[in-house]
Design a protein around this nucleic acid. Structure first.
Lengths: 335, 335
DNA sequence: GTGAAAGCGCTAACAT
DNA sequence: ATGTTAGCGCTTTCAC
């Protein structure tokens, strides 16, 4: 099954293969007649131009790298969905790179991506405290780069993210409005920017309401159901006076609900709850979870648009884009 | 920032660039001395061979296509995770192709993938009743192809899947052992092989226990929480005598639980439940969900292994691989 | 408007 | 053990 090449098309259409190239690239300087004939032959032979050969000479692969860390993370999975749709719309593909098992592999993956001459790289993974020298190095090499929810202080980086401070604020204010004063918080892992920002929103809401911040009402966890469950038990043990909880994601909120039930606390009568993410389960767990919805697919979409702009060399106007969140009221807040 | 090429390395190492090629491809016929010198220059210059140029001549891109339909589907997302890890282990990348929005785009995506000369294609999406001519055409063109949970009757296709008949059997038997006779079922959408197989397992279990199959105990849904919720309400309306339910996935099971609560049925006292998938939420919803766990990452892993074997031209011994499921007992079965 | 020539960066014979 | 000669399939000058 020999592949049909541009030369085969040229021969069959009785033109030079350069003319065929003009036709498939929609160059203006081809006679209408020739153009039609060539297209017809292309159809007949089922010719497909080799993206590889094109890439070799044009230095453009129309392929982007996609770095992700964790497919069980709802936020980033949705970002990828949005990114993929937008990329396809503009004729790009993503090469998938998941560092699921080992974040330390990232530099190596990046090397392999540049070896494959991707036109740009999208980071759909969180800010952590991992070493970031390899990313700084990419920036210095002027590799088009956009990140979602990943910030590198001091580096000029195009970032698309959600306004987590405002999200934390909304979540906490919702509980304050219900009259709560002893509002606990279960956070994600230390070192994440989103964790700090949501916590900042939480503190901001408290201070606006004149409620002093009480560190004994805060527990760290790791985003998982199990960790939320355990954190809630710790929280109940050390601060039994708690009447409301802001969990920094829905999984931990649902885990916490289990712990609350085990401790005999009714939801929302004894303890009200707000989560974060609006995962599909949030509307169907029992009781259904009040939460902060984030425009995750939109984040991926915007990030990809900016990335492709960078690839095309057009100056990207904004370096940082923050999208807004929305409070979704459900039963855990007594609705 | 001009890219360093093989020629630059050759010049700096004072050898022909063909020798450099030998070095980077680990050919035996290079003097140890030369080899060392070349490697050193490569390091110094930060040379990265162009995968594009290599691909052009060698006809191998070490890139695979990945067709997926829906990132909110836990099964396939996990398959992708397993596939990605295995691919990386063997030096391959996946080009991501999600037909999320419109399954009808698939033929076009496939065309774009072959244009990019992927070495093979993995289908991580379900069997549906969509037109499959474009896939048959790929098979005829001898494009290496492996599918997960996607069957094309009559075509010789390498498929990796889970034993859904046995899964349905285990789920139903678990309920029968608890003494239930009026066992309902909420299925996924008609036309899916996994839906038919799980239903077959359900019927098999009933018949083995001497319980007649009762069509009024079955409702179709579409895998979503909402659809499970609605199906359960319909089921309760038409067959109130129901005392147990097998939901063909966990999302529908959790949706059904909400409907049962609304109808005043206690779980598991009035109605026992078994789901399918063991999504992370299953262990944390209330009550926690008995379910069938599937080795999803393993499916992706095995599928990728087989695909790469096909790419390498080594005859793949088995054309169909079925992995086994496991019953996870939790509170919805009164444990 | 079209063809001829050159070259992208590399691998694969074939020499020596 | 190393260099030389081709050529992968295409785009891009530069002629005509």
């Amino acid at each position: 099954m020999k592949r049909v090449t541009i030369q085969d098309v040229a021969a069959a259409a009785v033109v030079s293969y350069q003319t065929v190239s003009r036709v498939i690239n929609n160059r203006p300087d081809v006679a209408e007649d020739t153009r039609r004939r060539v297209w017809q032959v292309i159809e007949e032979l089922g010719y497909q131009p080799s993206a590889i050969a094109r890439g070799l000479v044009s230095k453009r692969t129309y392929t982007l790298g996609l770095i992700t860390a964790d497919f069980s993370d709802y936020f980033f999975t949705q970002v990828i969905v949005g990114a993929e749709v937008e990329a396809r719309k503009q004729g790009y593909f993503f090469m998938l790179c998941s560092t699921e098992r080992n974040p330390a592999d990232e530099p190596e993956y990046l090397r392999l991506l540049t070896e494959r001459q991707v036109d740009g790289i999208l980071f759909a993974r969180p800010s952590t405290e991992e070493d970031s020298r390899h990313i700084v190095s990419l920036i210095q090499q002027d590799v088009p780069l956009v990140t979602t929810a990943y910030w590198l202080p001091g580096e000029k980086l195009t970032v698309v993210d959600v306004d987590n401070i405002d999200g934390g604020l909304q979540a906490t204010e919702c509980l304050i409005e219900l009259g709560h004063r002893k509002i606990g918080m279960i956070t994600g892992p230390a070192g994440w920017k989103s964790v700090n920002d949501r916590a900042e929103g939480y503190k901001l809401a408290l201070s606006r309401a004149g409620i002093p911040f009480d560190a004994s009402l805060v527990e760290y966890a790791d985003w998982s159901y199990q960790s939320g469950y355990e954190a809630m038990h710790r929280l109940l043990a050390k601060s039994p006076q708690i009447t409301a909880l802001f969990a920094q994601n829905d999984q931990m909120a649902i885990g916490a609900m289990r712990a609350l039930r085990e401790a005999g606390r009714r939801i929302p009568d004894d303890v009200a709850l707000v989560g974060y993410d609006d995962i599909p389960a949030a509307a169907y767990c029992h009781p259904s979870l009040t939460t902060i919805r984030q425009p995750m697919q939109r984040v991926g979409e915007v990030a990809t648009q900016l990335l492709i702009q960078l690839v095309n060399g057009s100056a990207v106007e904004r370096k940082e884009v923050l999208l807004t969140t929305e409070l979704i009221r459900r039963e855990t807040c007594g609705s």
